[in-house]
Amino acid sequence: MSRLFVLKNHKRGCFGRHAVLSLWALLLCSSVGAWAQSTAPSANAPFTIGATHLLGFPNTKNNCNGSLTIKDDALRFAQDAKPGAEVKIASVQGVFLGSESKQVGGTPAKLGKAAAPFGSGRVISLFAHAKYDTLTLEYVDSNGGVHGALFQLKKGQAELVRNEVVARGVYSGSGEDQATKQSTSEVTHDDK
């Protein structure tokens, strides 16, 4: 009797372990699935990033700040609280990355440097520069005319945009533009 009880108990314990194991496996699978679903880039999820439009985008001022959005089948640039301009992703023929080093501070900084005594403004120039990424887009209009657009983004962000555009089937050039080499040479000059 006691033997039977022990056996019965043993069986119940084994069943419980199986149940716990299968429940745990089920939970693990579902959580992994959910995590994968949340991290995988969805083709329709909008992607927005801050950028400066340098030139070439339709009906947009040159050298203006705004946000670059990739949503559905269009690439859109909009200034804050203004209706933006957009280009169909299907019309984009190529996307290229580059890099530039620019002096920061604009005209006030230039004036300040010029006013500094004994040419000490030059020393400020040595440190007052920042690196940016450039994103070049080549696209065609409804007549087949080729357009080019140029955007300036923070370092490392242009690649994110390129990946998003490439994920939607656009050809990307050789990856890094020659300007990258240029900025590299610039850095070596600066270091000297």
């Binding site: 290229f96 530039e100 070049t136 080549e138 533009d177 300007a179």
Partner: peptide
């Protein structure tokens, strides 16, 4: 479209000249 010739001119420069 701007012909870079034998030079390795950045795409950003080609686009900027063209536009």
């Amino acid at each position: 479209w701007i012909d870079p010739g034998d030079l390795d001119l950045a795409h950003s420069f080609q686009v900027a000249i063209y536009e």
